[in-house]
Design a protein around this nucleic acid. Structure first.
Lengths: 343, 343
DNA sequence: GACGCGGATCGAAACGTTTCGCAAAACGTA
DNA sequence: TACGTTTTGCGAAACGTTTCGATCCGCGTC
């Protein structure tokens, strides 16, 4: 491993001069600089990040905490990670992928105490999240993908649920639907206060109200089995519902089962929207589902970028970005049954 | 940030003694040790990884290179990452998620040159892979998820394609199929020599031969459109084929389209297997597809573990593990058309 | 009572950087 | 020529560890 000293020797200057020349920390005579750069290139010199980090207290490493598997870790969550890693790499940073153990706060204490990471990127943020409390208290810079209930002046990138819900509702209302339902995540599978579930619920309700649509909100399912039952119950209690938006792809599978069982067809008898699933997933369904595709990679990129901004200019105003899901129209949404148009 | 020196002061001993006591590097009198440990706990001391790494030349950080998005990065690939991160964490290591740029070797040179990572975990390995050449030459420890054509004494964890193909073929043969086809990845989308494509092709052919089945191997598709066309062509040329295994979920979508267009049903008229897709994905299809679920998380875990073994006992014999995909039987495989059994 | 020995602890050096006060050289001006 | 100013480069210290030879102490032995 070639060090700054080797370069200094070869270029016939002092170590500190090499450092200055290579980093542009202070002016170095053009000719000397050239000589140093040549020596560095010839020796294939690469600065040692550890030594640099030790003195500068900056490692240019970001940690991304990811929740234990099973808690709905899908394609979208992976896009957070790859998007963040890419944005970080573009800006000269690295991303550490840290699995979250049973005690996330202890995990964070450990992670930040080592001096290894400059900042933390949080995902799967809950409305009240102990992790943010710890990070605030410990003074560790961080940004969130998702957000707490009162993000105050914290940095975050999240889905624009308000906009997304209104787009979806407008799509359905435009087709002629008058009564819709949101098949939300079940409270059991996710810790209570799981942001997306709560916000989707609130915003779909608001959007439906604004559009003058009847709305059933408290229908919940996360598995195919649950989805089937939930849909049956919904139809029993509210037969007027002609369109359903499902938050979970698994639950959508159950709805399709139930639809088939009663001899119905999608979209003739029921319009089915998939909320929070990539178009790639929606394509696998028959018929191709209309979907609200979450901007996973973009949120990851934004999160990483705002964290880096925070690190490099700590005083700047908080960055808070909301990005709507993209409505990708498939073959599962059509005018409601009995409207005469499609059958 | 509390340092070794603070602990030493509080415990009234020398810095080096604290280091020895905390790491067990050399014997320290029980009472002294207790005193030191108490002081460390009271101060909330955490060793600084950078300083430690600087002298020990070991950071306990592993890098996982992941390919640029678009090259078929799905749920399985993500499981490599999370599995590896978890296994690493269990053993006290960290995982750096590194996006691979256009020049992977330069990327590696950079990554390993900084002294930041102890070893590298490679995925999406090709049969002839320049990255392994570089890593071997530079003496960087590494392990592969996947493998080159001649892995020699390299460490790897890969899918057991031979076993997987035989399981799949046995399943189909047992149902009565006599002629099958593998809908492989198209050569265009993947760099030539993409291991899984080549090995799946070879092993399915071998398994079919052994089972006495007629086999069509050179059918390729990676998108729905390609899948539809490929299937149509297959049926035109080889109408005797009654079962298809698709390597790509997208291609399977195309096959289902084509099946529907000709008024057929799955599995009555065609048995369709999904190779290399998680059961969760297979469930979204109607009917639920029979699938060969790759052991993504396990391969990730194995890869991380063998890399760590290599780091901690460099002389140990190479670890090479093959794990078969799990055959998850869905509703898409049944006796062949015309067999009288199912219709 | 001197000597040697082993266990326990200490102190200093080293890892590869950055940072900073200072000295040397170069230049312009009186 | 002498002096002040700017430019350029140097050397030492510091970051928080690990490592290793040196030192100190108590004890048994002859």
């Amino acid at each position: 491993m070639t060090s700054l000293r080797d370069v200094a020797e070869r270029a016939q200057v002092a170590v500190s001069t090499v450092s200055a020349a290579l980093n542009g920390t202070r002016p170095v005579k053009a000719e000397t600089k050239r000589r140093i750069e040549r020596a560095a290139a010839e020796l294939g010199y690469r600065p040692n990040l550890l030594a640099r980090g030790l003195v500068s207290k900056r490692t240019r490493i970001l940690a991304l905490l990811f929740p234990p598997p099973g808690s709905g870790f899908g394609l979208t969550e992976m896009q957070f990670a790859t998007g963040a890693a890419e944005a970080a790499a573009e800006l000269g940073y690295h991303l550490l992928l840290s699995p979250e153990s049973a005690d996330p706060v202890e995990e964070l204490r450990y992670l930040t105490g080592m001096g290894l990471v400059d900042g933390v990127l949080l995902m799967e943020v809950r409305l009240a999240d102990e992790r943010t409390d710890f990070l605030l208290e410990s003074g560790t810079p961080f940004a969130m993908i998702g957000r707490t209930r009162e993000p105050g002046s914290l940095d975050y990138a999240d889905i624009d649920f308000a906009r997304t819900a209104r787009d979806a509702v407008a799509h359905l209302a435009g087709l002629g639907h008058r009564a819709i339902a949101l098949l939300n995540h079940s409270t059991g599978a996710y810790s209570p206060g799981y942001g997306p579930a709560v916000r989707a619920g609130e915003e779909f309700a608001a959007a439906a109200r604004e559009a003058g649509l009847w709305y059933a909100g408290d229908v919940r399912a996360d598995t195919a089995g649950e989805g089937r039952l939930a849909f049956e119950r919904l139809m029993a209690e509210h037969p007027e519902v002609t369109a359903v938006a499902a938050m979970s792809d698994q639950a959508a599978v159950g709805v399709l089962q139930a639809v088939e069982e009663r001899g119905w067809r999608v979209p003739g008898d029921l319009s089915l929207l998939l909320a929070s699933a990539s178009a790639r997933v929606a394509e696998m369904f028959r018929p191709r589902l209309t979907t609200l595709e979450p901007p996973g990679a973009e949120l990851g990129r934004l999160g990483a970028r705002m964290l880096i901004d925070r690190l490099e200019s700590p005083g700047s105003p908080p960055a808070q970005r909301l990005v709507p899901c993209r409505l990708v129209i498939g073959d599962s949404s059509a005018p409601p049954r009995g409207s005469g148009a499609a059958r």
